[in-house]
């Protein structure tokens, strides 16, 4: 088990680095940025897979599979739709 202070340090560091990098994204791309981040929050899929694999009760297992479905819709739908949006941004020459 990783000690809790390491986990909290990782949390704080990721927040700080994320804050710095995301702040540089221009308002032009805020919608795709948001849907991309949104898809990223589906990272809970890993938690869902691990917890479901360990689940012994049927009830828990069903909960887990629902969680997998929800997280997967979030991830796949989010990235595809971001891709669709980003591909629409073009420069003048190609028009």
């Amino acid at each position: 088990m990783i000690p809790i202070w390491i986990l909290l340090v990782v949390f704080a560091a990721a927040t700080a680095v994320g804050y710095k990098i995301i702040g540089d994204v221009p308002s032009l791309l805020h919608t795709p940025l948001m849907s991309g981040l949104n898809a990223l929050s589906g990272v809970t899929i890993s938690g869902a897979l691990v917890s479901t694999a360990l689940a012994v009760h049927t009830g828990n297992r069903i909960l887990g599979i629902v969680a997998i479905v929800l997280a997967m819709i979030n991830v796949v739908g989010g990235f595809l739709v971001t891709h669709r949006m980003l591909r629409m941004f073009r420069k003048k020459e190609i028009r």
Binding site: L8, F11, A14, G18, I22, L37, T44, G47
Partner: peptide, 23 residues
């Protein structure tokens, strides 16, 4: 991530959290 001690979940979740706050 904190609850199940998973570094990946913690880091990626925190990045998304920060992004949402900036917006």
């Amino acid at each position: 991530g904190l609850a199940i001690a998973d570094l990946l979940l913690i880091a990626v979740g925190a990045i998304v959290g920060a992004g949402g706050i900036i917006l």
